[in-house]
């Protein structure tokens, strides 16, 4: 039951609260470039979700089985060349970035071949955007988040298993799709408006995206509220303490906002306290 709640909280976190576009700013290039009409945006979102899930699956597997110290495959092979104890300490995480980008490029290649064979009209409508998914920050970001939860945790029991990793990747893609489809819907209307010439195109998209980011900021704190509501076996006081610590912005290692962003939230709280209302 706790596992299911955990998965659900990761899913809601990745899709809405820590939305990849409006909170982490990854995947901006397709957000601005592809969101012209709703059908194409939806197709792009589905493609990104698909590639993200595949890439997350493969990269989690490689990270857990080969890269981290004490991984089964690397320590097994290392045992042929050194003592078993030393082989447990082989740490290949320095290769993570290179391996992840290789995995992503291959995933995109496979998806491209699959789409070209089975959905040729879709392939033609995508054009050059399908190979461009390789340079989509969102996919590499999902892999890096998973890596930080697998190899960056101090306690090996806290390391994410495959279910959590796939949940983050899939629902991160869902959140990306939501954001890009909403933007496409707005842009279809925006095409009919009288926008000043310097702002046509990317500039007005960014401003509207800012207003959407305001809207998505309303989801802050939903995670800890849900966790409090759904966790039955913790005593209430302990949960209260945990959740106020979590609300300060550190839900996990990579979900921790950069220090300046946390400072921004402190400024918000400070203003709320000191302003005369």
């Amino acid at each position: 039951m706790n596992y299911f709640i955990d998965i659900m909280l990761i899913a809601i976190g990745a899709a809405l609260i820590n939305n990849f576009i409006f909170y982490y700013f990854v995947g901006i290039c397709p957000f601005i470039g592809v969101s012209r009409n709703v059908d194409m945006a939806f197709g792009m979102g589905c493609a990104v979700t698909f590639v993200m899930s595949i890439a997350a699956f493969v990269s989690w597997t490689i990270t857990s089985l080969v890269l981290i110290p004490g991984a089964p495959i690397s320590s097994y092979i290392g045992a042929f060349f050194m003592t078993a104890e030393n082989a447990q300490k082989i740490d290949l995480t320095i290769l993570s970035y290179i391996i992840y980008i290789f995995v992503i490029a291959s995933s995109v290649q496979f998806v491209e071949m699959y789409v070209r064979k089975f959905f040729p009209s879709l392939y033609k409508s995508f054009g050059v955007f399908l190979p461009l998914i390789t340079t989509n920050c969102a996919i590499l970001f999902a892999c890096l988040t998973i890596m930080s939860h697998v190899s960056g945790v101090e306690n090996p029991a806290d390391a994410w298993d495959l279910g959590r990793a796939l949940s983050l990747a899939f629902f991160g893609g869902v959140g990306f799709t939501i954001a890009i489809v909403v933007m496409a819907g707005i842009r279809e209307e925006l095409d009919l408006c009288d926008i000043p010439k310097p702002f046509k195109g990317a500039a007005i998209t960014l401003v509207v995206g800012g207003i959407l980011a305001f809207a998505f900021m309303g989801f802050t704190g939903v995670n800890s509220g849900l966790r409090k509501a759904l966790t039955f076996d913790e005593p209430a006081a302990q949960v209260e303490q945990d959740e106020s610590a979590k609300d300060r912005g550190s839900q996990g290692r990579i979900n921790e906002m950069p220090a300046e962003l946390v400072a921004g939230e402190k400024v918000l709280k400070l203003n709320a306290r000191t302003s005369v209302r």
Partner: peptide, 29 residues
């Protein structure tokens, strides 16, 4: 100065970049 907290949060990023981009477009145009 009342710190415009929105500027260090995500919406401020989008809006700042959008307005600056518009300004540069206007200047180049």
């Amino acid at each position: 100065w009342p710190d415009w907290a929105v500027m260090v949060l995500p919406p401020g990023a989008f809006i700042t970049l959008g307005l600056l981009l518009g300004a540069v477009n206007w200047y180049s145009g």
